[in-house]
Design a protein around this nucleic acid. Structure first.
Lengths: 332, 332
DNA sequence: TTGAAAGCGGTACCAA
DNA sequence: TTGGTACCGCTTTCAA
């Protein structure tokens, strides 16, 4: 028998004890004689025994893995969240499986299904839409923490005050002397896109400015197309509040293509910080979200929900954004 | 009984057939009467039946999920690979679980263990080191495809001709008139870092130049520290070949801090393209790897290995890099 | 404290 | 073609 193929019955035979004793010994059950523990451990080592996680899960009805479902792996915002989740999950003895729903409800549903089927211990979900169907998880009583975007059903959640951040960013644009700020927003069915747009509207309305905005997918090409549309319009904006990093990539490419310099020809501020934001010319002003903390807080909520130490009702964590004014938004 | 909690025995009762028939009907087994299929489907729908993946896996000894283990989720290179893997996996009806080993052998080992325990159908692995222990997967005869970095044991693999790419990049630096190119390389125990360094050495040796290099972790801080060290040395380099995107982020930050302009004061070319490479000033020259294709090819190899349609021995795919000369490497 | 045995929820063999 | 049932590997009562 190849090493690492042994099952519990083999170990039992090798150690001369029952399967039950092997199981208890290996799981540090207190009622096992120290002599037996030693014998079982030795036998297990000799055989290279590794428990079959599937069988264990089937019996225990749970695993020691968490699922983290995000909408875009290539967005630094979500990878920062991922690191936060991983760090606290690891401390708690859990592994995290990352699933990329890619802003696609069908893929999201598949992963929700996989999570339920694999009986993960808990799920952290950035829902594509508020209506995402998590009933399979609920049916299996798998705890859920919702992040980034709200879900219709009430769960523990970690959100960011996007609207306030967006409003502040737009105010900043106006304060800097830009007279016609527009908003390049994400898809109109994505909550974060909407609340950032709302924040923008709050600000322009307060100042009696026109509301100028366009919806586009959270991708670089979307940003480029939106920027082009706005700039080609009859009465183009002189400043842009951009909905996220991916959009910003496209927007800046388009500005570059047109020879427009940020801060001189057009004011730009974008949602989410990025590691390269200070390297471009001029440095990009941003509204930064505490991404890593979103991850750690979410994982903490999940872990104590799993432990059963959490209070009854849903807990809502709301984090603030930080505006980092650099040069792209400053008129000169 | 809450919806979605039904098990196969419930469906059998509801449909008035045996469990065996339910199983066969739901799995499109050809030997089931069409009348029965209809009845079973209806009963399953009524009860909101969803098969328990764990139980199925235990019996079938496999799942329809793949694991993709990468070393750094926040590196765009790996997220591009991820998209490639996901796209072909989905076509084949598989979900992919992404695991971030974070350049840490212990985490990697944990995920390898999880993969084996969860009995994933296959694994695509970017090993931290050539000695990574995949014996648990082999013992469970789970197919493996190795990407990005070699493994001591022979498996299907998709690699990139890093050394050639690195050599070409360094030659380009030299051809552009830089007289003292140095290399900022990754950790000396990471194969890609080593082969890029080798490529650099090939080039400088061929020209009789000094070999100047420093090893540092694949992180922005590592890049910054390495750049500082080199620039502060007695005889500093006038050009830099940088090992990857994360390092480049740090290197450029350090150059900026010192007021050094790429292309004018120092020549820079880096391994891996990044979405923001054209947005910085001056645009960054890079050696681009076909990341998305690495992902698709790896998944293809894995899928037909799983189907059993692959030839006996390991297949090795070797992809080429593309140099994209922009301005940071051009002397002016 | 230890062992026997009953499942966990499906699947697939064998018999009818 | 359908049904009965052993079994996948482990955990956890229940008895001894």
């Amino acid at each position: 028998m190849p090493l690492g193929t042994a099952k519990i019955s083999d170990v039992a035979r090798e150690a001369g004890v029952s399967e039950a004793t092997v199981s208890r010994a290996l799981n540090n059950h207190p009622t096992v004689g120290p002599e037996f523990v030693k014998r079982v451990r030795a036998a297990a080592d000799r055989l290279g025994y590794r428990p079959n996680g599937i069988a264990r899960s089937l019996r225990r009805q749970t695993t020691n893995v968490l699922a983290l479902i995000i909408t875009d792996v290539s967005n630094p915002f979500f990878t920062a969240i991922t690191r936060g989740v991983e760090d606290v999950a690891q401390l708690g003895g859990y592994s995290v499986l990352l699933c990329n729903s890619d802003e696609d409800s069908a893929k999201e549903a598949t992963y929700l299904d996989v999570a339920a089927q694999q009986q993960v211990a808990g799920v952290i979900l950035a829902p594509h839409q508020a209506g995402s169907d998590v009933s399979r998880l609920s049916a299996a009583s798998i705890p859920i923490v919702v992040i980034d975007r709200p879900l219709d059903e009430p769960f523990d959640s970690v959100m960011v005050q996007s609207r306030e951040g967006a409003r502040a960013a737009t105010e900043h644009l106006i304060d800097s002397g830009w007279a016609r700020p527009a908003c390049i927003s994400g898809p109109d069915d994505v909550a974060t896109a909407e609340s950032r747009l709302e924040g923008y509207r709050d600000a322009v309305r307060a100042h009696g400015f026109d509301e100028i905005f366009v919806h586009t997918p959270f991708r670089a090409e979307g940003g480029a197309a939106a920027a082009a549309e706005l700039l080609d319009s009859a009465n183009p904006p002189d400043a842009l509040f951009v909905g996220n990093t991916q959009l910003a990539l496209g927007v800046m490419t388009e500005l570059q293509r047109r020879g427009l310099e940020m801060g001189r020809d057009i004011g730009v501020i974008t949602f989410d910080d990025a590691p390269w934001a200070t390297l471009i010319d001029p440095p990009l002003s941003v509204v930064s979200q505490p991404a890593y903390e979103i991850g750690t807080r979410a994982a903490e909520l999940l872990l104590d929900r799993m432990k059963g130490t959490a209070p009854e009702g849903p807990r809502a964590v709301s984090l603030e954004t930080t505006m980092r004014v650099r040069e792209s938004s400053i008129r000169h």
